[in-house]
């Protein structure tokens, strides 16, 4: 069981970055919005996971943010993709499609046998 959970979490972690980038690619977003969407997709359970990831992507130059005043608390960071980020996302999309193909192919082949 522990092994299964580990693999599952590894798989989720792998696609996490791709998903976040694709959510942000729709426009300027606030982390909370990302979380809502991710929670719906059951990719993230706790919010804490997101912040280190965003910081890492921002430090890698894939994201940039604007401060926006909020009337419900401290000012919020709204993230958007940098050109580099868009490039990165494209690459990831390509890789993802390939992966899906690869998974489908291997999985179906193995089930047909």
């Amino acid at each position: 069981m522990g092994n299964l959970e580990n693999t599952q979490s590894q798989m989720r972690k792998g696609v996490l970055e791709f998903c976040i980038l694709s959510i942000i690619s729709k426009g300027e977003v606030y982390p909370s919005d990302i979380i809502d969407e991710m929670k719906e997709a059951k990719l993230i359970v706790v919010e804490g996971t997101l912040y280190p990831l965003l910081t890492r992507l921002k430090n890698a130059g894939l994201l940039s943010y604007n401060w926006v005043e909020s009337n419900a608390g401290p000012p919020r960071k709204y993230y958007k993709l940098t050109p580099l980020g868009q490039e990165h996302l494209k690459e990831l999309k390509k890789t993802w499609d390939e992966l899906v193909d690869a998974v489908n192919q291997t999985y179906h082949n193995s089930t047909e046998k």
Binding site: K13, V46, G48, T49, R56
Partner: peptide, 10 residues
């Protein structure tokens, strides 16, 4: 809501 630090990735 925020989760345990152990659950954080990275």
């Amino acid at each position: 809501v925020m989760g345990k630090p152990e659950d954080f990735s990275g």
